[in-house]
């Protein structure tokens, strides 16, 4: 490529430094201060903010976050792999249509979708009402439970798992599979020894795409958990809303460190960001 294009990336690098790296520095400073919002005029130096990390409410919220994020990642990895594999195996090779089917739900407002899901999780809802008109009486009451939050998380973020796995499966050379079958491996063995190892890249990317929003989200647990289930995102949101930027920044940095770890993992598996989209 032509050298004169190199300078085109420079402004973006500066933009990223200002908007992506500089705020972490601000947060790092805020952690050691006791300020009123972002007003630095009568700031005082303190280590007191760190005691929040050992507070039981933080630990519970963080444990909840990890639990829900891990569970929904594992669940959506299993379900997502299955769907991606079936799509890959089907004669249905129209990638455009597959993408459309998976992306279309994302065009509806996520909060509305969650709210609608929450409505149906209550014992009296529009579905039970319609069913009772034709004489079927059912009632489910799971709103406010962990199960409700888990269902909400899995079915909101599942497309992010299916897409990278499907992309990874598509990229596998078909002759590899034929070779394996020709050489006498059974289909199951071919899957475990050839197909699955070659698709792990997609699973890793997909898992990160699901794990991260589940770990830090606060709208889904708030709506589906009816306030019973507090995740770390809700705690951070509370602190910032109450203008306690110092503790909020500390917890946000804590999450950010976890995420940086994940980003490095992605970089290791996928140096040029190929499967991310």
């Amino acid at each position: 490529m032509n050298d004169s294009y190199k300078k085109l990336a420079k402004p973006y690098e500066i933009w990223l430094y200002i908007l992506a790296l500089f705020p972490s520095l601000i947060m790092l400073v805020l952690v050691f201060l006791d300020t009123e919002g972002i007003n630095f005029t009568d700031a005082s130096f303190t280590f007191g903010n760190f005691s929040q990390l050992t507070e039981s409410s933080t630990i519970i919220a963080f444990g909840n976050s990890l639990k829900f994020a891990l569970l929904s990642t594992v669940l959506s990895a299993i379900l997502g792999y299955f769907v991606a594999y079936r799509l890959f195996r089907s004669k249905f090779k129209n990638k455009f249509l597959i993408l459309t089917i998976l992306i279309l739900p994302m065009w509806s407002n996520i909060l509305l979708r969650i709210e609608a899901l929450g409505n149906v999780m209550q014992p009296n809802n529009i579905i039970t009402d319609l069913l009772s008109k034709i004489g079927i009486h059912v009632a489910i009451d799971i709103k406010g439970s962990s199960l409700a939050v888990l269902i909400g998380l899995v079915f909101t973020y599942l497309p992010f798992m299916i897409l990278p796995i499907y992309t990874a499966l598509e990229k596998i050379e078909p002759s590899l599979e034929e070779a394996s079958l020709d050489l006498g491996a059974t289909q199951l063995k071919t899957f475990w020894k050839v197909i699955f190892p070659l698709s792990t890249k997609g699973i890793v990317t997909g898992s990160i795409m699901v794990f991260l929003p589940c770990l830090s989200g606060f709208a889904i647990p708030e709506i589906l958990g009816s306030g019973n289930i507090v995740l770390i995102g809700n705690v951070i949101d509370q602190f910032f809303r109450n203008m306690n930027y110092n503790i909020g920044a500390l917890l946000a940095l804590f999450i950010m460190i976890l995420i940086l770890g994940a980003i490095f993992l992605v970089q290791k598996v996928d140096k040029e960001g190929e499967t991310l989209l």
Binding site: L21, P23, G37, G217, G248, I263, E272
Partner: peptide, 27 residues
């Protein structure tokens, strides 16, 4: 690779952290 690493930050960072970060810069 360095710029792509930075480029992944807005993509992978938690929405809440991105939101707060930007708010801090704007503040």
């Amino acid at each position: 690779q360095r710029i792509l690493l930075l480029n992944n930050i807005p993509l992978l960072n938690a929405d809440i952290v991105t939101g707060i970060s930007l708010m801090l810069v704007f503040s």
